[in-house]
Amino acid sequence: MLLDLALWLATPAPWRHRRLGYVRESVLLSARARRCRRVWAPHAAHTRAAVLAACADLPLRREAVVLGSGPLADVPLAELAAAFERVVLVDAVHPLSARLAARRFGHVRLVTADLTGAGDPVGDLCGRADLTVSANLLTQLPVVPVDRHEAAGLPVPERLGAEIVAAHLAALGRLPGRVCLVTDTEQRTEDRAGRVTDRLDLLFGVSLPPAPLSWDWELAPFGEAERHRRLVHSVRAYPDWAAARDGLSLP
C-alpha cells in the first residue's frame, strides 16, 4: 500500500490524467503485475513474439508506434529500437520503470495521450508510422470512462464501451502502415475444479475476426481476486490487422 502511494505521487502525469484516474489504474496494474509476474510471463512473451512477427518482413522501418506501452513488460523495446529509426511509446501514463527503460535509447520518444479523447488521436500519432502496435490496450480504453460515470453516480451509457472499442478499431483500420493488434476478448471465472462459473465480454459486443495467434492469460490466479476462483482472459493477436479485418462489422 505504501509503495503504491509512493508510485502514485512519483509518477509524472498531467493533472487531468491524474484526476481522471489514469495514474491510479496504472499503479494498480503495476502492483498486480508484480504479484503475478510468474503467471503473466507467458502472456508477455506471446505478445512480444506477435509484435516481432509483425515487423519481420516490413520493407520500411522508419518509425514504430506502440499504443498502450505501459510498463513495457509485453513490448520488445530493445528489438524495436534496433530495427527502427524512431520508436514512439504512447500511453496515458508512463510508469517510472518505462521512463528509465526508454532512456537507454536516444531515438525512443514517450508521448502522453488519452486515446479515448475527441478527434482521432490514433491517426494523428500514427499517420506516418510503418508499424503501429496496439498492445493489450483495446479493452482497457473503456475502463476509466465507465468508472468515471459510476463514481459520479451517473448511469453508464448503454453503448459507451462498444463505441470506444469500435472507435479504436476503426482508427487502426485507417492507418497506412502495418498494424499489429493484440487484445484480450473475454474473461472467464474458473473454480478449482476447472468449471467456468462466469464469462464477461471484454469487447462490449464487438466481434473480432478469427486470429492467427491466440492464447490464455491467467490474469488473476487463485488467491489474487478470490481464494477459490481465478480469472483467465482469452487473447487474440493479429500481426497484420489489415489482412484479418476484412468483413469486420463495427457498431
Rank of each mutant, 00 (worst) to 15 (best):
T112L: 01
L96E: 10
G119R: 14
V111F: 04
V93S: 05
L77H: 10
A102S: 02
G119N: 10
A92L: 01
A82W: 05
L96F: 04
S97V: 15
V122C: 11
F84S: 00
R86H: 06
L80S: 03
V111W: 05
R86T: 01
A82K: 05
L100H: 13
G119Y: 10
L89T: 00
A92I: 07
A101R: 15
V122F: 11
A83V: 11
E79V: 11
A118V: 14
R104Y: 05
D91S: 00
P121V: 08
L100T: 14
V122A: 12
G117K: 09
L89A: 00
L110V: 06
R109I: 03
L115C: 06
R104W: 13
A78W: 11
A78R: 15
D120F: 10
R109T: 13
T116I: 09
A83E: 13
L100D: 08
A98N: 02
A113S: 04
V108N: 03
A81V: 01
G119E: 12
A81K: 00
L77S: 11
V93R: 04
E85C: 02
V122T: 14
L77K: 08
P121S: 10
R109D: 02
V88D: 00
P121R: 09
D120M: 08
R104E: 10
S97T: 15
L80R: 01
G117P: 07
H107K: 08
L115W: 03
A82L: 07
A81I: 07
E85V: 05
